[in-house]
Design a binder for these strands. Structure first.
Lengths: 210, 210
DNA sequence: GTCTATAACCTGATAGAC
DNA sequence: GTCTATCAGGTTATAGAC
């Protein structure tokens, strides 16, 4: 039943390549359906591997899910931390954060859905593993500093952090509901992604400025 | 296996009451897991009815899902249309829209998740049935008018409509990921919901103002 | 309209060969 | 490390009695 996909043949037996192919396929599939509704058979077929290999490398479906989560989030968060945003002026830090974060989403439009599925369907079970709290806290700190120094209007830093992330990610998550708003434009095409990035940044900066 | 829930007994055989109980339970369950991952058994138990009744009234799981969707969305959108927002000044119209929309979400915090599951997991299959495009178009029209009259800054009305809805709904969808940002506060408690409503309205109004 | 019991199917996971 | 074949368990949906 499960056959290698002839379009993406694995030339030789290669553990790393197989694992990477499975994780890539898992990212797509979990982003589409969430942990509970994703099917290992589909992931296997997409990756060009077999179900057996999934269980060989990742023990079970949830093990694969967690490995996928970690790969998708942890390294990206570390890159943001490495930007040392807390040492910049709050308005500059926020703009750089938004620019970088939205660029990351444009590169991997699956991330928003994976993040929301983890919250909605999986009830935030692995919120610690993806270090999402630190992510929001970093953003809150920037906002708090901006309010204190007067460059931002009075606002609640934590609510603002959440609402601002909502602005960035919703476009990706709701794409199948909103795509008919635009005729002949691919929502994940380069043109539209750039426009979303610009519009989101302008909206947020205008929304926090004093 | 499936037994009536003694806490919510149906006194006598009553078609309307049974259907309503099933739809209520379905709303909760579909909001938690989406169509594909929701279990009819759970819906039956929660509603105090049996699986058989679900199939009797709604043919199959997807029939129940669609009935739930329509009940949840259509009437609410009609209420927004009845507000005749297009006859008000754009800034007033937007503020009224936000206030009303966020009040609706506070009353039924399941709506954002149902909406996003329909887009993400169900690929927007029933976007026509829930008339979601009209919803965004109404909002776009208000924004466009505000830009034209100069009360709003230059912005793309469609992107802004999407980003703004994202700000309103994300809080509800991400709640299991963000709840640890606040100690000892229930995110769906009255206090926090009111605060979210205020913060979201202020953010959006500040973000569009010229 | 409602129930119990069960059919039919699907999918996560494993055994065992190579 | 990888494959084929299969099991075990769970879930949708229905049959038939009341």
């Amino acid at each position: 039943m499960t056959k290698r996909n002839p379009l993406t043949p694995l030339k030789t037996y290669n553990a790393k390549a197989t694992q990477a192919a499975i994780l890539d396929a898992a990212e797509e599939e979990f982003a589409k359906h969430g942990l509970a509704a994703a099917h290992t058979e589909v992931i296997a077929t997409k990756s060009g591997a077999t179900k057996t290999m999934i269980y060989y490398y990742f023990q079970n479906k949830e093990g694969l899910y967690l490995a996928m989560l970690k790969r998708a989030f942890v390294e990206r968060f570390q890159e943001i931390q490495a930007m040392n945003l807390d040492q910049l002026a709050p308005d500059i830090a926020l703009e750089q954060f938004l620019h970088y974060f939205l660029s990351q989403l444009n590169k991997n439009p699956n991330l928003p859905m994976i993040m929301l599925y983890e919250a909605m369907q999986n009830q935030g079970k692995y919120h610690e593993e993806i270090e999402i709290l630190e992510f929001y806290r970093l953003l809150s700190t920037i906002l708090k500093g901006g309010v204190a120094s007067g460059v931002f209007r009075p606002l609640d830093p934590q609510h603002m952090a959440v609402n601002l992330i909502g602005t960035c990610v919703f476009y990706f998550c709701a794409k199948e509901n909103i795509k008919h708003l635009w005729e002949k434009k691919r929502l994940l095409g380069k043109e539209m992604l750039t426009q979303h990035q610009q519009e989101a940044i302008r909206f947020v900066l205008a929304g926090v400025r004093a």
